[in-house]
Design a protein around this nucleic acid. Structure first.
Length: 933
RNA sequence: CACUUUGUAGCUCAGUCGGGUAGAGCAGUCGAUAAAUUAUCGAUUAGUCGCAGGUUCGAUUCCUGCCAAAGUAGCCA
């Protein structure tokens, strides 16, 4: 018996079936960086149209988590796909390095600034800490397969970035958007510092709840306003407060202009409260037998003079829309020093702040009676004083949620302090920003509504912080007038140049006379630092405009949907303030990673998925595939099961690539490729199908629907290739002689398919694509990532056997498979080659199927397949295609040991008694001929 | 509590701009194969389209309410 197996062309490849990604990927990465892939790509795209995706800087603190991974992988997919589309798409990663969380962590190590360490040392430690965090995160990102300029990332703490942040501020000052103002901000009396919003958490607090009477100064004036009324006793406006300590700072009582108010007789006195709240006030204060004496709108009392409950001073009634009927009395005690609404409404009436409470929460000397008292301890005394003055209507304890310092857990106060603001109104910045939203493409579209609603309620942006680790606000203000130095722009540039050399420490060390000369005695250095959101917000200037390979506006900003409030907004506002243009053309947002039930991940629930763990167990490409496969416009669910399914899909795609490669062993595209016209019909079709799919995939890359790409590629591998084309063509590849037209035709097709497929997959399965790339025959001196989409031939419009025909054939195959399966279940046949089928067809089907000549059996993978026209006495088993029935018999022929088909011609050739005629030709002669399949 | 987004088979996604028994792949199940072999091929089970109402001849698709999850803001005198 001859060993015919050696005459077959069985698949062979170096490309391993088992990915073993967790080990292989780090090796692949080594090559990327040894061979400078990023630089190679830049070179390959030099001079091409740019696509600029600007990296939103992650905060330099902590290990990377799944959210980081999602964000960076999406960016990487976009960068790589744009590159495949021919764009020059550089990726400069960045980090946000200043700010509070770093201060906290450093403080834990070295102690408090001013107590254990001086400011300069503290900042140095912060810088070192941030640098370490950057290195750690960088390593994590690189491991994810993100390609970028990791040797030259941007850090907001780079000296030149710091200098340009300062210059950015200078631009904004120059354009008149920066204003100095007072504003009540969250203030920690324990930390004696302002707090950023992010440092505030809400906790329950028990407060005093008191109702306080403000007596009328002039009853006659009141009567003029509200008309005649009766009753007897003193007349007071009643306010309700939960912060008695703010009463010494009271400067007004606010009423809603449009609410109805009542004058009520209550026992021996008369009280003013809002009509809508009368009952709740009566109940709380246990007021009996109230009588309505008069009714009037709030606006009637504007400027009415009231007596302060315990000071000899007069406070006015003022009007504000912030007064509601949710709670209280409808009359609001107003202390502009200690409430945002109070501050705003006070400003309207020219009522400023008093600054009675110092940074430690202690009343200043100017405060009568309570000077030197701490606001947290003074309340019982105030209440006692009110009581003795007869001004207290009611008191009780009250539990409500209240802002606390996240670190010390102590309750915060609002305290008006001088701060720097980027004004939304001074130079109509908000209007300009809102208008700019129109010209930006928001993906998904609801992002636009989101940013709009954020902008609508956008107050002036407080950019100053009383912090240590932040870019300084490099301004000089006049000691008396508080005005900015007239040469501010020039001074800022001078300072920026110093910062460029020595970092922001240059400002803190600066002796004013060195830049101001003799002016210095009149001017004061501002020591506040900038809100970190300013640092990152201004990167369109400090990074995009500075780096040669980038430009502003960027084509795309891409961050999680929380950044509508954050970076998207801060970038837009600063760019508009600086040069009146938006910093980006498109904004893409993604949802957050959630667990299998769509719940937030938290350590306490134990439902977190650590990217590091996924890397080690399943590999980076599986994580990347999960990101690509998930619709990122909503929440993105991850769990063990989901990742396991993803790994299954990964394997299928990998195996398809591997099989295609294995069929190309010994194939040289230059020498062996056939022109498209000479390919067998099914090979032409599969390429055509591939080309059409490729256009769909490119379109999906362009509109960022990666999950569709995943679905389509996977489906293509499973359905078109595995379940149809590759299964059918296997016979031809294996059994026909090496250099036959039939085999070269299949190889030509499959070669083009891998070329295309590996590129499709490269932005997503980057490691695998890179690994496969070097197994494809041909020149691979450039990385896949530097290549462009593979050019695929298409069937001409009037092609004989078009896509419709082949889809029809696939349907027939499925119908016949069902019959085969049924009969196999009955034990009549084994595999499909043990069967011989006759399709009994209507005229229509007959004329369709006879176009394949006697090659139909290779489609059906049966040993014999014949067509017969329908006639009355000639029917087979029904199929689900009307007009086709099947007669199926188990073949009685001998099995060809070479091709496994059962053929009557096995043994006709005396020298090869075990094989069929076709195989004899393929082994000894010039081979069989195929046209279609 | 408000606003926004999401809710289709165990998983990932289609789809329905009102109409005919709701689609695909994976997973599961059964079978084939041992020439993609910890692969591959075939067949096949599976969904009251979040819940409840309404409009309509007819709704998963339109409207309203509710529930769940997420994001953001606020929780103030």
């Amino acid at each position: 018996m001859t060993d015919y197996k050696s005459t077959l062309n069985l698949p062979a490849t170096q490309f391993a079936m088992r990915a073993n990604l967790s080990q292989r990927e780090p090796e692949i990465l080594k090559r990327w960086y040894q061979e400078n892939y990023y630089q190679q790509i830049r070179q390959a795209r030099e001079g091409r149209e740019q696509f600029i995706l600007h990296d939103g800087p992650p905060y330099a603190n902590g290990e990377i988590h799944i959210g980081h991974a999602v964000n960076k992988i999406l960016k990487d997919i976009i960068i790589k796909s744009k590159t495949l589309s021919g764009f020059d798409a550089p990726y400069v990663p960045g980090w946000d390095c200043h700010g509070l969380p770093i201060e906290h962590n450093v403080e834990k190590k070295v102690g408090k600034v001013g107590l254990k360490v001086d400011q300069a040392t503290f900042r140095k430690k912060c810088r070192e800490y941030a640098a370490k965090q950057v290195e750690q995160q960088k390593e994590g990102f690189i491991r994810l397969g993100i390609l970028g300029d990791w040797q030259h990332p941007y850090l907001t703490m780079d000296f030149n970035t710091e200098a340009n942040i300062v210059r950015g501020l200078g631009k904004i000052v120059e354009n008149g958007h920066l204003v100095k103002g007072f504003k009540p901000v969250y203030w920690s009396v324990v930390g004696s510092s302002a707090l950023a919003e992010a440092e505030v958490e809400y906790r329950d607090k028990t407060s005093f709840s008191i109702d306080v009477k403000f007596a009328l100064r002039d009853e006659a004036d009141f009567e003029k306003r509200v008309g005649q009324f009766g009753g007897h006793g003193s007349i007071s406006v009643v306010i309700w407060t939960t912060t008695p300590w703010t009463l010494p700072v009271n400067q007004a009582v606010s009423l809603n202009p449009n609410l109805e108010y009542l004058l009520l007789q209550s026992g021996e006195e008369r009280l003013v409260v809002a009509e809508a709240l009368m009952e709740s006030v009566a109940e709380r204060c246990d007021l009996q037998e109230l009588q309505r004496l008069a009714s009037f709108p709030g606006k009637a009392l504007e400027h009415l003079q009231l007596k302060h409950p315990f000071y000899e001073k007069t406070v006015p009634v003022i009007l504000g829309e912030h007064v509601t009927t949710d709670a209280g009395t409808g009359c609001v005690h107003t202390a502009p020093d200690h409430g945002a609404d109070d501050f705003a409404v006070g400003a309207k009436y020219g009522i400023g702040t008093l600054n009675y409470v110092d940074e430690n929460g202690v009343y200043s000397e100017r405060v009568e009676t309570f000077a030197g008292e701490h606001v947290y301890k003074v309340e019982p005394k105030i209440i006692a004083l009110l009581e003795s003055r007869g001004a207290l209507l009611h008191q009780e304890k009250f539990v409500h949620s209240y802002p606390h310092c996240w670190r010390t857990k102590s309750p915060l106060i609002f305290r008006a302090t001088p701060q720097w603001f980027i004004s939304m109104t001074e130079k109509s910045l908000l209007a300009k920003v809102t208008a700019a939203v129109d010209d930006i493409r928001w993906v998904p579209t609801w992002g636009e509504a989101r940013i709009r609603s954020m902008l609508e309620s956008s107050p002036d942006w407080c950019v100053s912080r009383q912090r240590t680790w932040g870019v300084p606000i490099t301004l000089f203000v006049h000691r008396e007038s508080q005005e900015l130095h007239p040469d501010t722009p020039a001074l800022i540039e001078k300072v920026a140049q110093l910062i460029e050399k020595k970092g922001m420490e240059a400002w803190f060390e600066l002796e004013p006379q060195s830049v101001l000369g003799s002016d210095s005695e009149h001017y004061q250095k501002v020591t506040d630092t900038l809100d970190v959101w300013f640092d990152s917000g201004v990167t369109h200037f400090s990074v995009l405009q500075q780096r040669e390979e980038l430009r502003c506006p960027a084509d795309l900003y891409l961050e999680g949907s929380d950044q509508h409030r954050g970076w998207f907004q801060s970038s837009l506002k600063t760019a508009m303030a600086m040069y009146g243009n938006a910093p980006y053309k498109q904004v893409l947002t993604h949802g957050f990673a959630m667990d299998a039930e769509g719940k937030k991940m938290s350590k306490s629930l134990g439902n977190t998925v650590a990217p590091q763990k996924v890397m080690n167990e399943l590999g980076g490409d599986v994580l990347r595939l999960w990101v690509a496969a998930t619709d990122f416009s909503g929440d993105m669910n991850v769990s063990e099961e989901i990742l396991k399914r993803t790994a299954d899909s990964y394997r299928r795609i990998r195996n398809t690539v591997r099989y295609l490669l294995s069929n190309l062993s010994g194939f040289s595209p230059q020498q062996h490729s056939l022109p498209f016209d000479e390919l067998l019909s099914i090979d032409q079709w599969v390429l055509d199908r591939c080309a059409r799919l490729q256009s769909e995939i490119i379109a999906h890359y362009n509109d960022y629907s990666f999950h569709q790409i995943y679905q389509k590629i996977h489906n293509y591998c499973v359905v078109d290739l595995g379940g149809f084309y590759l299964d059918i063509v296997k016979d031809r590849l294996y059994t026909m002689s090496k250099n036959s037209r039939g085999r070269r035709s299949a190889q030509t097709a499959q070669y083009a398919i891998v070329e295309a497929l590996v590129r499709w997959v490269a932005p997503i399965l980057s490691f695998t694509a890179d690994e496969a790339w070097r197994e494809i025959p041909g020149d691979r001196s450039l990385p896949v990532f530097a290549s462009e989409w593979f050019d695929l031939p298409k069937l001409s419009a009037g092609a004989e056997l078009d896509d419709g025909f082949w889809q029809y054939v696939a349907k027939v195959k499925t119908a016949v498979n069902r019959v085969l399966e049924r009969r196999r279940g009955e034990g009549d046949i084994g595999n499909s080659l043990t069967a011989e089928v006759t399709l009994i067809c209507s005229d229509e089907h007959y004329s369709q199927l006879q176009r394949l000549g006697d090659e139909l059996r290779f489609i059906l993978i049966t040993s014999k397949a014949e067509l017969q026209r329908e006639s009355g006495n000639n029917v087979g088993e029904a199929t689900d295609i009307p007009g086709i029935t099947v007669q199926l018999v188990k073949s009685q022929q001998r099995k060809c040991v070479r091709c496994w088909h059962f053929r009557e011609d096995v043994g006709t050739h005396s020298e090869h008694p075990e094989i069929c005629e076709r195989c004899v030709k393929n082994v000894t002669g010039d081979g069989e001929r195929r046209e279609f399949v």
